[in-house]
Nucleic acid binder design. Structure first.
Length: 264
DNA sequence: AAGGACTGCAACCGCACATTT
DNA sequence: GAAATGTGCGGTTGCAGTCCT
C-alpha cells in the first residue's frame, strides 16, 4: 500500500531548517543532515563503534555521543537493510515477540539487518492495526448484542484488548535489561549473523549504501584510502593524511586532531 | 483541489547496567 | 569499594509523506 521509506527525508532536512533545536548543553538536536551523516560515518570508520562521546567530540558534530550512536546504529550502519519487512520477517517478529516480549534488541539480533528501533516501530504499527481491527470487530458485534456489561468487564478494557495481540506480556516479568543469561547465546547469534553478512548472505539488495550518500563512500571492504572524504577542512585533511590510519591511542590522536581543529 | 486523518519512522528521553578511574 | 563515565535498552514523541473524504 504505502511505500515511502525511500522518500523519508528527515535525515536531510530542507536547508532552511537545519539550525533549529539545540539542547541545553549546546548540542544539536533533531534530524541529521547529510553532512553530519558523512562526518559521523567517517569518524566511526576511523575510531570504531565505541566511545561515542569521544567520537562526537572529535568529529565536531556538536551532537551527544548518544545521538551519534543512535544515528549510526539505526540508520548509518552498513549492515542495515532498508525498506519494508518481508512477510517472512513479519512472521519472525510476531513469533519472536511471542517468545521474548518487548526485548527488541534481542529480537533484532535474531533478525539480520534490522534494528531494535525498526522492529519496535513495526510492532507498534502492527499492534495498532490489530487494535483497530479488534475494536472494529467488537464494535460490530456489540451493536448486535445488548450493552449491559458488568462493572467487572467494563473496568478492564485494557486487559482484554491487549490480548488481541501477541504482546500480551509486553511488560511481563522480563527484567527490562536482559543482561545476563541470554547474552552468551545472543552474542553467538550475533557472531553467526556477522558471518552471514561478511559473506554477503542475507543482505537485502536495497542497502543504505546504495544511496547517493554512500555511493560516494565506497564503504565496506574498501581500504580507507579509497574512501572519499566529505568536504575538506583542516580536520578532514588531517584525517586523510596517512598519519591517522593505524591509530594506536585515541587520546593521543585526539590531541593531535585538536591541534588542527578549527576553533568554533 | 484542499485539508484532515492516518501511517511510518527518525530521534529523543530516562533509566539501568557495564566499565573505567 | 565508590564515583564517574560510557553504553545499551525500551518507551515515547514529533513530523513528513500519503491516503481519504
Amino acid at each position: 500500500m504505502k511505500t515511502k521509506q525511500a522518500s523519508k527525508a528527515k535525515a536531510a532536512p530542507s536547508p532552511g531548517k537545519e539550525e533549529e533545536a539545540v539542547a541545553p548543553g549546546g548540542f544539536r538536536k533533531g534530524p541529521w543532515t547529510e553532512q553530519e551523516d558523512m562526518k559521523l560515518a567517517w569518524f566511526v570508520r576511523l575510531f570504531g563503534e565505541r566511545r561515542w562521546d569521544f567520537l562526537a567530540k572529535v568529529s565536531g558534530l556538536n551532537r551527544t555521543g548518544k545521538s551519534c550512536r543512535l544515528r549510526w546504529v539505526n540508520y548509518l550502519h552498513p549492515d542495515l537493510k532498508r525498506g519494508r519487512m518481508s512477510p517472512e520477517e513479519e512472521r519472525l517478529v510476531v513469533d519472536l515477540h511471542a517468545r521474548w516480549g518487548n526485548r527488541w534488541s534481542r529480537i533484532a539480533k535474531a533478525m539480520p539487518g534490522r534494528t531494535d528501533n525498526e522492529i519496535k516501530n513495526y510492532w507498534r504499527t502492527h499492534t495498532r492495526k490489530l487494535h483497530k481491527d479488534t475494536r472494529a470487530a467488537s464494535a460490530a458485534s456489540a451493536s448486535t448484542t445488548t450493552t449491559t456489561s458488568t462493572s467487572m468487564s467494563a473496568a478492564s478494557p485494557a486487559t482484554t484488548s491487549s490480548s488481541s495481540s501477541s504482546s500480551t506480556n509486553d511488560n511481563d516479568n522480563h527484567s527490562h535489561h536482559g543482561h545476563g543469561d541470554q547474552e552468551t547465546a545472543a552474542s553467538q547469534e550475533q557472531a553467526d549473523h556477522q558471518l552471514l553478512y561478511t559473506s554477503g548472505i542475507g543482505m537485502d539488495s536495497h542497502l543504505l549504501w546504495n544511496d547517493a550518500l554512500m555511493d560516494s563512500y565506497a564503504w565496506g571492504a574498501a581500504a580507507p584510502s579509497m574512501i572519499v572524504p566529505p568536504p575538506s577542512s583542516p580536520v578532514w585533511d588531517y584525517c586523510c593524511s596517512d598519519s591517522l590510519w593505524g591509530i594506536g591511542d585515541d587520546e593521543v590522536e585526539y590531541k593531535k586532531m585538536l591541534a588542527v581543529m578549527p576553533t568554533s
